[in-house]
Design a protein around this nucleic acid. Structure first.
Length: 981
DNA sequence: GAGTTTGAAACT
DNA sequence: CAGTTTCAAACTC
């Protein structure tokens, strides 16, 4: 067997999947809780010692705190922790604060683990753990909800009282305080609906507890049948065994966790939901624009979505949703999706919905579009736990129970919408287009939520770990509605999670500007289409950095489908509008991209349109967001002003008309664009990577589908029933009835499929398939594993590199990282933007002369460097005559001439003439010519000069092409070129 | 397709 | 860190 693999894994000693714990599981007997009691501020207990810390990125306030949550060991008690102990913001913050009266300590009902869970809500009132009851007790400030204890005096239940249109049960506590409870009725819709308020168990599904009220005894959060959820003005403790799916929904956003979805069993009174973390647990995945699926949750479905500025309506059970004032999380609000699991992060102040709320209206954010538009999007929610805590800035975490987390930039907000329709936001123009949405499948939610993904604007300080923006950027004027999830990421494919899990992610370079493709991949030296096998030979792990390129294809193909294809990396050029052409921005060079861009811009207000610019040479900044301000002069000519997303000063303003179908990389306007062989190879590489990305997306979809099919059948039925019933109750709430495998499907016009088709049409090939037999695909021997990919259609044996063995896989990843923290980093990177790519470690070839694919350098089509320890190396640099700088425009990679050795040019030998004169080359040449025109017009130079320079440009380009072809004795190519000329 | 070669990864 | 073993891909036949 694989002693190596298992050894590495076993060393960790925590291969056992984390048990899925509910809140009640977390509530522990006081005896042991003491030790495990976690202070909100700090501690943590045990920070996972994994070496993946690097992937956590730099520690920001949030991340650092988030790491405290990284407590993945099975022996470690689940922690309910608040990332930031900050004050609530008024008015809602005040309201909540008053209501809650301070910190909330959730002490548990004795179930499985012994521990105390503290839920602190921001007012910094350090509340001692209330273990007095010895059982579950929830203390909210001065309010304590105690677990069933015989010694606790029962509450006095009085007649229901109508509060704010909601019938509340007024409970008088022993000490004379009044507690208003609202029992959540079985809700039709959403998953959670089925949670019965079990009279026998005396569960209080939801309660609104006024400040200063101590609940004791009468609300027995029964440890044995704790299927209750307690909502304390947004804070909902979800019962343990009968896991009540937590659903947080605002008009536009519905986040449902846990088993209610088609993924898992929906909790029912009669059917305790399985809480044990296992491979059968619903998998929460986030499908990125690249089609990659990031598994957010495994085993223990606890997800925290904590955003700062997204208004969030936390709805009670659907039945009560209409009556009960909906709490809306204000800007600083955070959403807690509390599935029965181990970790809970609560942040952000709550904000009430203005409408019909008997509660104190707090900080009605008029801008919060979600309220207004919510109706269609909301799905039923049952027990939703939400606590607000001020989180003025910093970051938030999206975390699963297993500790996987996504660090979210505080400014950005996750905007979830059960529907891909774009009405989710009032703010961002791009939100209106479904094309910018990312599908997020949350376990317990039958449908998929869509997260609009836009790049972070530059306001966010750039930290070394790149951020994956999964949401709309906050706009200056109205940021509250924007949602952006910045996923802390590494430079490549893994993301550190709080639980120590490594989440395969698209390469960081995929999200970076143009630099990425060349800088970190071997794309520059991509093999030509004539050699499909060679294309396949390219290592997958080096491909991810050009994931951006796939988006062009994807987006173009998907157009306005609502599917996940949000990230649109593109070169954008500011160019004047003409009355006949609205395509002012475009991607790279393809008309299709232009078309897409046109769509994008079309969704924005006429004056300002936000586009992402992929071409900026700000390597560390990731993509830029430019606001294209459209202006019209007296002549009706429109100008597009790139007023940038971060650099401040307006960009180029052109008053000329750009020919449609061509675009310019803004930074390359003056540069004669001549496609060098490297450029051409780069283009080929792009195609290859696009194919692989597409394949990857499919792969993961299939995996997920396969894994969840079994559970979905029941879930679908149940959920459909729920949906139907809910629809009758609240037609405003819609629960996506689609099963996950439907949801995760590509959009109606699937980008991946289309892209793949297009790529196939181009003669490309897909990813390689491993053939591992002994490593279980959990060693770096396996390319799939090494690339952070799941095996699909591989011929491997005993493959564990799939979602079915996610635990093992994660352990293996951790093991690899322990051995080599850079194990999952790109092997080939460019030290600096524009530098030549180099193998970070260098090869160690001895017999191949570095001229066979045994050599990683050679395979990557890069010359060996001083890092290499190879013997008899013949993989030298070559072609000093080639204008590598010109490549910058595409690959942003140039081989410094001083580093140029004598490259044998092997990778060029097989190329034929038609490779050199491709459509791309021609197009690039034309672009160069156009750029000359643009520049001349901008300078108001005489037309004669323009014409002359254009012709010079053409001649120069042709000359380079011919020269290169000539060197290769490619007479055909030369003929073609001359003909063209 | 089987066998060999090769070098990275894993292990000692 | 060096040497050895393991492994899977590349390569050859």
């Amino acid at each position: 067997m694989d002693t190596t693999a298992s050894a590495g894994v076993d060393e960790l000693g925590d291969t056992t999947p984390l048990p899925e714990l509910t809140l009640y599981d977390l509530l522990e007997s006081p005896a042991t809780s003491k030790e495990q009691n976690m202070d909100v501020a700090g501690h943590s207990g045990t920070v996972d010692k994994d070496s993946e810390d690097q992937y956590a990125g730099k520690k920001s306030a949030s991340t650092s705190s988030g790491e405290l949550l990284n407590n993945p060991g099975p022996k470690k008690a689940p922690i309910v922790r608040i990332l930031e102990n900050k004050r609530l913001t008024a008015p809602m913050g005040t309201a909540l604060k008053n209501m809650l009266g301070g910190s909330v300590r959730v002490v548990t009902a004795p179930t499985k683990t012994t521990q105390t869970m503290d839920v602190k809500i921001l007012n910094k009132l350090q509340t001692k753990p209330l273990n007095a009851f010895g059982n579950a007790a929830v203390k909210i400030g001065s309010t304590t909800i105690a677990a069933p204890s015989g010694s606790i005096p029962p509450l006095t239940t009085q007649m229901p009282k109508n509060i704010g249109g909601v019938t509340m049960t007024q409970i008088k506590t022993a000490d004379g305080k009044v507690l208003y409870l609202h029992k959540s009725l079985p809700v039709s819709g959403g998953s959670t609906a089925k949670l019965p308020v079990n009279a026998t168990s005396r569960l209080v599904s939801q309660s609104i507890i006024s400040k200063g009220v101590t609940l004791s005894g009468t609300v027995p959060i029964k440890s044995t049948a704790p299927s209750s959820s307690i909502t304390v003005r947004g804070l909902t403790a979800i019962g343990a065994t009968k896991t009540t799916p937590a659903t947080i929904s605002n008009p536009l956003t519905t986040i449902t966790t846990s088993q209610t979805s088609g993924l898992v069993k929906s909790p029912s009174s009669t059917e305790p939901a399985s809480v044990a973390g296992s491979s059968k647990m619903p998998i929460q995945v986030v499908r990125t624009a690249e089609g990659k699926i990031i598994k957010l949750n495994q085993g223990a479905p606890s997800v925290l979505l904590n955003s700062k500025s997204t208004p969030l309506a936390v709805r009670a059970a659907a039945s009560t949703a209409q009556a009960i004032p909906t709490a809306v999380l204000s800007n600083s609000s955070s959403r807690l999706i509390n599935k029965p699991s181990t970790q809970v992060i609560i942040k952000g102040p709550l904000k009430q919905l203005p409408a019909g709320s008997s509660l104190k209206p707090v900080n009605n954010n008029t801008s919060s579009s979600s309220i207004a538009t919510s109706s269609g999007g909301t799905s039923s929610s049952t027990a939703s736990a939400t606590t607000g805590a001020a989180m003025p800035s910093g970051k938030m975490l999206v975390q699963s129970s297993t500790g996987k987390q996504i660090v979210v930039a505080s400014k950005n907000i996750i905007k979830l919408s059960p529907k891909p329709s774009g009405n989710a936001t009032t703010n961002s123009n791009t939100n209106t287009t479904p094309s910018g949405l990312h599908a997020i499948q949350l376990s317990g939610k039958s449908g998929v939520q869509y997260v609009r993904v836009l790049p972070n604007n530059n306001t966010e300080p750039t930290t070394s770990p790149q951020k994956v923006s999964l949401g709309r950027p906050r706009t200056s004027s109205n940021s509250n509605n924007n949602s952006t999830v910045s996923v802390s990421n590494t430079s490549k494919i893994v993301m550190k999670t709080m639980g120590g899990s490594i989440v395969p992610l698209p390469s960081m370079q995929t999200l970076m500007p143009r630099r990425a493709p060349g800088a970190t991949s071997n794309s520059v030296h991509a093999k030509t289409p004539n050699n499909s096998n060679s294309l396949e030979a390219t290592r997958k792990h080096r491909l991810s950095d050009i994931n951006l390129q796939i988006k062009h294809l994807t987006n173009d193909s998907t157009g306005d489908t609502g599917g996940p294809d949000a990230k649109k990396a593109r070169y954008v050029i500011a160019m004047p509008h003409t009355s006949t052409s609205s395509a002012t921005t475009s991607t790279t060079t393809t008309p299709a991209s232009q078309k897409h861009m046109q769509k994008l811009t079309g969704t924005r207000p006429p004056q300002v349109q936000r586009v992402t610019v992929q071409g900026a040479k700000v390597a560390d900044q990731g993509r830029k967001v430019y606001n294209l301000v459209t202006k019209s002069d007296a002549n009706g000519v429109k100008y597009m002003i790139c007023n940038k997303g971060g650099e401040g000063k307006p960009r180029t303003v052109f008053n000329t008309t750009m020919r449609r179908g061509y675009t310019l990389a803004e930074s390359k306007l003056r540069r004669p664009v001549t496609l060098t062989p490297q450029q051409m190879r780069f283009k080929q590489m792009k195609l290859q990577q696009q194919r692989q990305i597409v394949a990857q997306a499919k792969l993961r979809q299939q995996h997920i589908q396969k894994q969840q099919l079994s559970n979905q059948a029941k879930q679908q039925q149940q959920q459909q029933q729920i949906v139907n019933s809910k629809t009758t109750q609240d037609n405003k709430s819609t629960v996506p009835a689609k099963p996950l495998f439907d949801i995760l499907k590509p959009p109606p016009t699937p980008a991946p499929a289309a892209a793949a088709a297009a790529l196939d049409a181009l003669g490309g090939s897909r990813r390689k398939h491993c053939n591992c037999s002994k490593s279980q695909c959990l060693k770096l021997y396996c390319d799939c594993f090494a690339n952070g990919e799941f095996c699909q259609d591989c011929t491997c044996k005993d493959c564990f590199n799939n979602l079915d063995y996610e635990v093992k896989r994660e352990r293996a990843i951790r093991s690899c990282l322990e051995r080599n923290p850079s194990a999952f980093k790109p092997k080939i990177t460019a030290p600096n933007s524009g530098d030549m790519r180099l193998h970070n470690k260098g090869c160690n070839c001895k017999r191949s002369g570095c001229l066979k694919n045994y050599c990683e350098c050679y395979e990557a089509k890069i010359p060996c460097s001083a890092m290499c320890k190879c013997v008899g190396c013949r993989n030298m640099e070559d072609r000093p005559d080639v204008d590598m700088d010109s490549m910058d425009s595409l690959a942003d990679v140039k081989l410094p001439s001083n580093k140029m050795k004598e490259l044998n040019g092997t990778y060029l030998q097989d190329n034929r003439s038609n490779v050199y004169l491709t459509d791309d080359v021609i197009e690039a040449t034309i672009m160069c010519m156009i750029s000359r025109i643009v520049m001349h017009e901008k300078q108001n130079l005489p037309i004669e000069d323009t014409e002359r320079e254009v012709m010079e440009e053409l001649g120069e380009s042709l000359n380079q092409i011919i020269t290169f072809a000539k060197e290769k004795n490619d007479t055909f190519h030369m003929d073609d070129t001359k003909t063209m000329a």
